[in-house]
Amino acid sequence: MTVLSRTRDKAEDARALGAADLLATTDDAEPAKATGRFDLVLDAIPAPHDLAPLLRLLALDGTLSVVGYPREVQLQLMHLTYGRKNLSSSGTGGTKHTAELLEFAAGHGITADVEVLPSSRVDEALARLQKGDVRYRFVLDLSDLDD
Rank of each mutant, 00 (worst) to 15 (best):
T63M: 04
T63K: 00
T63I: 01
S65M: 07
V66I: 07
V67G: 00
G68D: 05
Y69W: 09
P70R: 12
R71C: 13
L77S: 13
L77N: 05
L77V: 09
L77C: 06
M78I: 06
H79E: 12
H79G: 00
H79A: 11
L80D: 00
Y82H: 03
Y82I: 07
R84H: 05
N86Y: 05
N86A: 06
L87I: 03
L87T: 02
S90W: 04
S90E: 02
T92P: 03
G93N: 09
G94E: 08
T95F: 13
K96C: 00
K96T: 08
H97K: 11
H97R: 12
H97Y: 14
T98I: 14
A99E: 15
A99Y: 14
L102Y: 14
L102D: 14
L102K: 14
E103M: 15
A105R: 01
A106K: 08
A106S: 14
A106H: 10
I110T: 09
T111M: 04
T111G: 12
D113Y: 04
V114C: 05
V114D: 04
V114F: 04
V114R: 02
E115I: 03
E115Q: 09
V116N: 05
P118F: 12
S119G: 03
S120W: 04
S120M: 05
V122Y: 15
D123S: 08
E124T: 13
A125N: 04
R128F: 06
R128V: 05
R128D: 10
K131C: 11
K131P: 06
G132A: 11
D133N: 13
V134T: 09
R135N: 08
R135L: 08
Y136M: 07
R137K: 12
V139K: 11
V139R: 11
